[in-house]
């Protein structure tokens, strides 16, 4: 048994089909628990008012927006090194989800920012970094759309993902340098003093778990769709050649 066995599309389809319902159910349970707990049963914060509750969507979405890009980077590297189609298709499947997560983080952030800072948008380093991340997602997805040949487009998007990651990091550093912002620090951290109060901690953690599970569910569904589309294309090519 090795992990690479799941790189075989057939094996992947079997396994993912079996675990998919479980992930779906779990993500519904976690998301609804986190959301209901967070929105209905936590006190309003002193300075924040009820607007603080958008945190249960905003923070997990922002977290996923970054982590999905990291996941795409890893699967792209796996494709470049080991040439497993499933790997690069998972990256392709994840990109639109990451794009949506980035958009959610930006929109909820704007809604939250209005009562908090008195403005929907500020050129704060974190906000700007997410805007830049959005551009990277758009470029990555657009490149997938533009080219037909499956191997070529997989290679090109993987290279773009690698180079893009380097430049995204550089941009992150650059915007920090460019404007010291008004965004608060990390919401959850183990070593810092200033994390959120305990009442908010658990529902936030559950929401985050819910978002992770939701992502796994969606990315499995989408990867399965991509594999089926690829098989269909292969069968049609075969038909043509006969």
């Amino acid at each position: 048994m090795s992990l690479w066995e799941y790189a075989n599309p057939r094996k992947f389809m079997q396994t993912s089909g079996a675990v998919l319902p479980w992930f779906a159910v779990l993500s519904i349970i976690f998301l609804s628990t986190g959301m209901i707990w967070g929105f209905s049963f936590t006190p309003e914060a002193e300075n924040f008012g009820s607007s603080v509750k958008i945190m249960y969507v905003h923070v997990p979405a922002a977290l996923m927006a970054i982590n999905i890009w990291v996941m795409m980077l890893v699967t792209s590297l796996v494709w470049l090194v080991r040439r497993h189609h499933v790997s690069v298709l998972a990256a392709r499947a994840a990109a639109p989800i990451g794009l949506v997560m980035t958009l959610i983080a930006l929109f909820t952030g704007a809604i939250w920012g209005q009562p908090m800072w008195g403005t929907y948008w500020a050129w704060d380093p974190r906000l700007t970094a997410f805007l830049i991340l959005l551009m990277f997602y758009l470029g990555y997805i657009a490149l997938w759309q533009a080219i037909d040949d499956p191997e070529t487009v997989a290679d090109l998007t993987s290279v773009l993902c690698m180079v893009g990651s380097v430049f995204a990091l550089l941009s992150r550093y650059a915007v920090n340098f460019w404007n010291q912002g008004l965004h608060q620090g990390a919401s959850l951290s183990l070593d810092k003093e200033e994390h959120v109060a305990d009442v908010y901690y658990w529902p936030l953690l559950i929401s985050m778990a819910g978002f992770v599970l939701l992502f796994i569910t969606l990315v499995l569904i989408r990867t399965r769709t991509e594999i089926r589309a690829r098989r269909l294309a292969a069968l049609m090519a075969r038909e043509r050649n006969q």
Binding site: M135, F136, L143, F167, Y173, F177
Partner: peptide
């Protein structure tokens, strides 16, 4: 597409240059 791919990559250069 080229513009869409290249412009995000230009961000750090632009920021440091203008700064």
């Amino acid at each position: 597409l080229l513009s869409l791919l290249v412009l995000p990559l230009y961000v750090p250069t632009l920021i440091f240059g203008a700064e």
